[in-house]
């Protein structure tokens, strides 16, 4: 069984990857860590691994709207097929 997960990029990742979103098709079960590894493998830059502590991951699936995930703290959480993950940069004002 494959899981379809949509990633939406904001901030640095969007500008460095030159895309707003992409869809990943991964073998189930998909952990958050599997997903991060898949993104890094495809897009390079290793940005998510290098500075995960101030990346913000908003996880939206059917019944869970805008849950926030942290990496690596939530690395073992299972990501449901059909869900959307929005990735933001560190949020400081200025």
């Amino acid at each position: 069984m494959s899981a379809i997960i949509k990633i939406q990029y904001f901030g640095t990742l969007r500008l460095l990857y030159h895309m707003k979103e992409e869809t990943f098709k991964l073998n189930e079960p998909v952990t958050f860590e599997n997903l991060i590894n898949a993104i890094n493998e495809k897009n390079g830059l290793n940005f998510l691994i290098k500075s995960p502590h101030l990346m913000f991951f908003h996880y939206e699936s059917g019944e869970e709207k805008s849950n926030q995930l942290k990496f690596p703290k939530n690395k073992n959480i299972y990501i449901k097929s059909g869900s959307i993950i929005k990735i933001f940069n560190a949020m400081t004002l200025g």
Partner: peptide
């Protein structure tokens, strides 16, 4: 610094999306 790239690319305008999502 983890913010270097972001600040270089967008300055403080990165905040529109970030605060909107928050």
């Amino acid at each position: 610094h983890y913010e270097y790239e972001t600040r270089k690319l967008m300055g403080t305008t990165k905040l529109v999306h970030a605060l909107n999502e928050a």
